[in-house]
Design a protein around this nucleic acid. Structure first.
Lengths: 201, 201
DNA sequence: TGTACATCAGTGAACGCGCGTTCACTGATGTAC
DNA sequence: TGTACATCAGTGAACGCGCGTTCACTGATGTAC
């Protein structure tokens, strides 16, 4: 006798689960994910501390869910936007600024936990970033001087990561200026390896 | 009546203070600085919890001391080593690997708290990194195409930061390979802006 | 249709524990005269 | 030289508090027949 929850039930459970994830993200952006407690997050999500266990066995498991269910889609959106038409440097800078504007808390979590306390989270986030690197390398490999393209991809990824960090520490109205700066920096490292790549801007 | 502590007394106090700083660094590398408690650090430094207050008023103040007294010298050593003779890319890569070999815990603290939970620590560490950027920009400015030199400096700093992060997540015996990779990447972004810069390796 | 039973998210009470902080104290070592 | 006093790093007891976790329970809603 296998009982299945009704769609409404599953939907309701998912709502609470999302509330927990968002609460952890918001509080983690303020005090750091490693210092978050199960009670603190549950309180912010308006459930009893004991109800936490209906969704996650502990905080690290919640962190992994954050990577799988929120960081992963964000990185893929970033890759998709960067693969659309136009100059690569511009597309990357736009996608980056868009990510920070759309969900600064998630970006904060991503860049912080990439070098954070939990090994398991560092690994998971590094894996997400690797997707971005290989996409960049592929884009570059289409041009000449393929050997140098991996250097360009590595430098571009480092600039992107650095750009995310700087965008977070800057007022929203200054992000346009940061975008211009990023475009120039990315063009510098990307176009040097392949002059055929778009350089109209 | 101003009483001054004898040199031996001050020395002894300094020893305990250093024990606290090192303990915080070691534990912070494992569980993250934001999650450290005053009692935990005091225990690791072999003093009573109440004695902590003879040195710092709270953990954030200890964190600031870490930046001022340990991060600052490390960055300056890095700058000094990078300013010696030889190809710039090599000097930078060597200085970076040397820093990780000499004090991985300190490097971990530095890169983690640069994007960590405490605003005050983020600011302090960003200020230290700015020194490195200006030194890089000056080195580049000596060559032609001065306008592009700031892009090269920004890209190089991003690569350096990225290199530190990767060096930490790699076994010590793999750091030689990472050094080679870094030299190539740095040469790529630095020499592109100034072909006159050393490129013998 | 009614009845018995299963599932399961959410709950409140209770537990033992480590936390940050306060306090009054000790003991070594200085200065004043 | 001796005596009175000041300084100050380190300490142990005690406090109130929030933590993670266990437990038995509720109530809504499913299935079996």
């Amino acid at each position: 006798m296998v009982l299945r929850a009704t769609p409404e039930k599953r939907e309701e459970k998912e709502r609470v689960r999302q509330a927990l994830l968002r609460a952890a993200l918001r509080l983690g952006a303020q005090h750091g994910f490693a210092s978050l407690g199960l009670r603190e997050v549950s309180r912010a999500a308006d459930i009893a501390p004991t109800s936490f266990y209906r969704h996650f066995s502990d905080m690290p498991e919640l962190g992994l869910a954050l990577v799988r269910e929120l960081v992963n889609p964000m990185v893929h959106t970033l890759v998709t936007q960067a693969s659309e038409g136009g100059a690569l440097s511009e597309r990357l800078a736009d996608a980056l600024v868009a990510a920070v504007n759309a969900d600064a808390e998630l970006v904060r979590f991503m860049v912080a936990e990439r070098v954070g306390a939990f090994v398991i989270l560092r690994r998971a986030i590094a894996a997400e970033f690797d997707v971005l690197t290989s996409v960049l390398a592929k884009t570059q490999r289409s041009g000449p001087r393929a050997a140098r393209s991996s250097f360009a991809a590595a430098a571009a990824l480092a600039l992107i990561y650095d750009g995310l960090v700087r965008a977070l520490d800057v007022q929203p109205d200054q992000r346009a200026a940061l975008r211009e700066q990023l475009i120039a920096q990315l063009a510098y490292v990307l176009e040097a390896s392949d002059p055929n790549e778009g350089s109209d801007a």
